[in-house]
């Protein structure tokens, strides 16, 4: 945002007083997290989106391919309103987390079905391959010239039925999809359908001077999820108020994010509680604590491998 570009970067430490971080402290806390929980790693992100106040190769933190086996509303037994995507409602609650943005009008990500290849006739296919193989180079050269012809202007899903495939008669390969559906087919199919995976990232938000949590989801066949659908994996009270859909700062993608406007406030409280309990948390522990707090907002996304990490003391 414009405000973000104009604001100076926080330079003095105030994590205990205000629950905020300087970029240096974010890096220190990130290093601690990566060391304690190797499922997390630093990423450099897109070259054009690097923030100068963070090291080149430590722009944000990522943990990938985190399973999410069921939706948050299944966990809460219907407590969640069907209309939870109506973010606007949250705005009316005076002391609610600020509802920003509302839903975007992002077009549906059109799910193009994977193409079937007539794999039931290996013999014929094999014959076809040996024929087609010889022509391959000619075909490639011929097509280079007329790239971007009619075909790519068409809205239709290209017909790939004529893909020539030699069925690899390899009985020792297990296809992950068929592997599960053999035993209790219905239940397992159900499990597959509900299983999403998330790439989770934590960026530094210069305006709020706190970490910011992002969810990029994939459905059971690894198609990118519409960001709005990620709201199904956020607990009801937060889905209505605190989750927004914005451009990710380092990846060319709009994705669901937990708005950081109250993070500093909550973090200060949590740090105070730890201090009162006799544990003196250092700034390195900030992200570990932060992720525990976020875990309550996304109850079915089991990313929190940090439980055993020793904090305080």
């Amino acid at each position: 945002s414009a405000a973000e570009t104009l604001l100076p970067v926080r330079s003095s430490s105030a994590f205990k007083e205000k629950g905020v971080l300087t970029p240096e402290e974010f890096v220190a806390a990130g290093d601690f997290l990566v060391g304690a929980c190797p499922t997390w790693s630093w990423e450099a992100g897109e070259a054009g989106k690097k923030r100068p106040y963070l090291p080149e190769d430590k722009q944000f933190l990522v943990t990938r391919n985190i399973p999410c086996l069921c939706r948050a509303k299944d966990l809460l037994q219907g407590k969640m309103d069907e209309e939870m995507v109506e973010l606007q409602e949250g705005q009316q609650e005076a002391d609610a987390w600020v509802a920003t943005g509302g839903s975007t009008n992002t077009e549906d990500i059109e799910k193009i079905a994977d193409m079937s290849l007539g794999d039931d006739e290996p013999k014929e296919a094999e014959a076809g391959e040996s024929q087609g193989g010889g022509e391959a180079e000619a075909a490639v050269e011929g097509k280079q010239e007329d790239r971007g012809g009619e075909e790519s202007d068409s809205d239709d899903i290209p017909d790939m039925e004529d893909f020539v495939v030699e069925e690899e008669d390899d009985t020792v390969t297990i296809n992950p999809r068929t592997a599960v559906s053999s035993s209790d087919a219905q239940e397992d199919d159900n499990k597959i359908l509900k299983t999403r995976t998330y790439d989770i990232s934590v960026t530094y938000d210069k305006y709020y001077q706190t970490p910011r949590f992002w969810l990029i989801g994939y459905d059971e066949s690894r198609q990118l999820l519409k960001p709005e659908l990620a709201l199904e994996d956020v607990s009801a009270e937060h889905a209505e108020k605190t989750v927004t859909i914005d451009m990710h700062p380092h990846i060319p993608l709009s994705s669901a994010s937990i708005h950081p406007c109250k993070h500093a406030h909550v973090m200060k409280k949590l740090l105070d509680n730890l201090s009162e309990g006799g544990k003196e948390p250092s700034v390195e522990h900030y992200l570990v604590i932060f992720l525990k707090f976020i875990a309550s907002i996304v109850p079915t996304i089991d990313y929190d491998y940090t439980m055993a990490a020793d904090i305080g003391g």
Partner: peptide, 29 residues
């Protein structure tokens, strides 16, 4: 060669218009 989401041998596809298309990005913003 990887099986696709249908469980057959074949390519997969992914459409990223909503995230990569500048027009759609602009309207989403």
């Amino acid at each position: 060669w990887e099986h696709n989401a249908k469980g057959g041998l074949g390519p997969r596809s992914v459409n990223l218009a909503s995230t990569l298309d500048p027009k759609q990005r602009a309207s989403a913003a």
